[in-house]
C-alpha cells in the first residue's frame, strides 16, 4: 500500500466514526458539530482524490451554509447548555431505519460495482483543466445544460416559495392581531 492509501483509510475511518457519533450523541449540538467533522472528512477525501474543486465546495456549501444553519436552529430551540435532560437518541423505529440505510447502501454498492466506467482508467494530458471542462459541460447543450437549468428553476421556485410563505405568515399574523 502507498502512503496515500493509508491516509485514505485513516480519513475514511475518521469520517465514519464522526458520522456514527452524529446519530449516537444525546446532545443535539454535539451531533451537529460532529456532522461538521464528518462533512470535513468527506472534503478531505475529495482532496485525496485530487478533486480540489469538490473539496472546496464541500466545505463552502455543506460546512459554510448547511451545517451552520442546522446548528443555528438547534441552538435556537435549546434553552440551556448545562441542561442534561436529553431524550433517548433512539426509538422503536431504529431497526426499520437501519434496514432502510442498509438497503440504500446495498443498492448503491451494487450499482457502482456493476458500472464499468467506475473501473476504467483514463490518461489525461498534462495541461488538462478539469474545472474548465466541468464548466463547459455545465453550459453546453450536449452536456448538462438542461438539468442545470431545471435545477436552477427548482431552486428559484423554492426561494420564491420561502419568501411567499414568510410574507404571508406575517400578514395573517397582523390580521389576527
Amino acid at each position: 500500500m502507498t502512503p496515500i492509501q493509508y491516509f485514505f483509510l485513516f480519513t475514511a475511518g475518521f469520517t465514519l466514526l464522526a458520522a456514527l457519533g452524529v446519530v449516537t450523541r444525546r446532545n443535539v449540538v454535539h451531533s451537529a458539530l460532529l456532522l461538521v467533522v464528518a462533512l470535513f472528512g468527506v472534503a478531505v477525501t475529495f482532496a485525496i482524490l485530487e478533486a480540489g474543486f469538490w473539496a472546496v465546495f464541500q466545505v463552502l456549501v455543506y460546512i459554510g451554509a448547511i451545517a451552520i444553519l442546522m446548528i443555528f436552529m438547534v441552538m435556537l430551540t435549546r434553552r440551556n447548555v448545562a441542561d442534561e435532560t436529553y431524550p433517548e437518541p433512539f426509538n422503536d423505529n431504529m431497526r426499520l431505519a437501519f434496514l432502510a440505510a442498509l438497503l440504500v447502501f446495498g443498492g448503491l454498492a451494487l450499482t457502482i460495482g456493476g458500472w464499468d466506467a467506475a473501473r476504467e482508467t483514463m490518461t489525461v494530458p498534462l495541461d488538462y483543466d478539469a474545472l474548465r471542462e466541468f464548466g463547459r459541460a455545465m453550459v453546453s447543450p450536449d452536456g448538462y445544460l438542461v438539468p442545470f437549468i431545471l435545477v436552477s428553476v427548482l431552486l428559484l421556485a423554492a426561494l420564491v416559495g420561502a419568501i411567499y410563505v414568510a410574507v404571508l405568515g406575517n400578514k395573517s399574523q397582523e390580521e389576527r392581531e
Binding site: 480540489g52 472546496v56 465546495f57 459554510g64
Partner: peptide
C-alpha cells in the same frame, strides 16, 4: 498554487463562522 484559490479563501472563512458559533 491551488487552481481554485479564490474559492478556497471563501470556504476557509466558514470555519471562522463556525468558531464564533461554537
Amino acid at each position: 498554487d491551488l487552481n481554485v484559490g479564490v474559492l478556497y479563501i471563501a470556504a476557509v472563512g466558514s470555519f471562522g463562522i463556525l468558531s464564533v458559533l461554537m
